[in-house]
C-alpha cells in the first residue's frame, strides 16, 4: 500500500496532472474567494457563498485527480505488475485513494491561505466581529468529507475504462447526476412515496453535511460519508476481482 501511495505521489508531480490540478483549483478558488468576500459589492467576512461555489466546482476539479488512477494502469499494462505483486487488490485501491486524497488535502491547505486576509485587523466589513471560526472549520470538514466521496467515486469509475478522458467525463457526469438528484430531493415533500424519499436521501451527498456548515459536529453525517467512500473503494476492488474471472 505504501509503495503504491509513494508511486502515486511521485507520478502526480512528475507528470503534469498534480500541477494542473493545484494550479487550476487554486487560481479558481482564489478568484471565487475574492469576488464573494473582499471584492463583493458589499465586502463581507461571511464565507458561506464561497464554500457553496467551491463545493460545486469540486465536481470538475476532483476528476482531474482520479481520471488516470486505474485507467492508465490498464492502458499501459502496468496493472499486470501491481496485480501480480504480493499485495491485495484492496490495499492497492487504498494506496491510490490515499494518493489522490493527499493531493486534495494539499489543495485545501493552500487555499486556506486566502482566509488570512479575513482575520487582518484592517479588514472589518462586518463591524469588529471577524469571520466565524467554527463555521469556517465546519465548512472545511464538509468539503473534506464530500471530496473523499468524490475521489472514491472517481477511482471506481477509473477502474471501468482504459481511457482517462472517458474516466474524467463519466466521473463529472456521475457527480453532476448526484447534484441533480439532490435538487430533486429538495423539491420532494412529505407526501411523496416513502421509497423514493429513502433512496434520494441515501444519495444526498450534497446536503448531508448541513450541520457542519453551521459549525456543529454531526457524527451520523461523518459515518455516512465514510460509508459511501468505503462502498466505492470496495466496488473498485470487486471490479478487478470480476475482471480476473471474466
Amino acid at each position: 500500500m505504501l509503495a503504491i501511495y509513494k508511486k502515486e505521489m511521485h507520478s502526480y508531480f512528475t507528470t503534469v496532472t498534480g500541477y494542473i490540478f493545484l494550479a487550476v483549483a487554486l487560481v479558481i478558488s482564489s478568484f471565487v474567494f475574492s469576488i464573494t468576500t473582499i471584492l463583493a459589492d458589499e465586502p463581507t467576512s461571511d464565507t458561506s457563498s464561497y464554500f457553496s461555489i467551491i463545493l460545486f466546482l469540486m465536481i470538475i476539479f476532483l476528476p482531474i485527480l482520479t481520471m488516470r488512477s486505474f485507467s492508465d494502469e490498464r492502458r499501459t499494462k502496468t496493472d499486470q505488475l501491481i496485480l501480480t505483486s504480493p499485495n491485495s487488490i484492496f490495499s492497492i485501491v487504498i494506496g491510490k485513494f490515499l494518493g489522490a486524497f493527499t493531493m486534495f488535502i494539499i489543495y485545501l491547505a493552500l487555499s486556506c491561505l486566502n482566509f488570512i486576509i479575513l482575520f487582518l485587523p484592517t479588514f472589518t466589513p462586518d463591524g469588529a466581529s471577524g469571520p466565524n471560526v467554527a463555521m469556517l472549520i465546519g465548512n472545511l470538514i464538509a468539503l473534506i468529507l464530500v471530496g473523499m466521496c468524490f475521489i472514491a467515486i472517481g477511482i471506481f469509475i477509473s477502474t471501468l475504462t482504459e481511457n482517462m478522458f472517458a474516466s474524467a467525463v463519466l466521473t463529472v457526469g456521475a457527480l453532476f447526476g448526484l447534484l441533480v438528484i439532490n435538487g430533486i430531493g429538495n423539491l420532494l415533500n412529505a407526501d411523496s412515496l416513502y421509497a423514493v424519499r429513502y433512496i434520494i436521501d441515501w444519495l444526498s451527498i450534497f446536503s448531508r453535511f448541513d450541520a457542519f456548515v453551521y459549525g456543529y459536529f454531526d457524527i451520523s453525517a461523518l459515518i455516512y460519508y465514510i460509508s459511501v467512500t468505503g462502498i466505492f473503494l470496495f466496488l473498485s476492488e470487486r471490479v478487478f476481482q470480476a475482471r480476473r474471472l471474466s
Partner: peptide, 30 residues
C-alpha cells in the same frame, strides 16, 4: 506471488520514471 517474478508480453513500465526509480518502486511493491 512472492515466489514468482513475471515479465508480461508488454513490459509493465512506468515510462515517466527513471530506471532506478522504477526498480526501487518494484522493490517496495514486492
Amino acid at each position: 506471488k512472492r515466489k514468482i517474478g513475471f515479465l508480461p508480453e508488454q513490459p509493465p513500465l512506468y515510462i515517466d520514471m527513471t530506471v532506478w526509480e522504477y526498480l526501487s518502486f518494484v522493490f517496495d511493491l514486492k
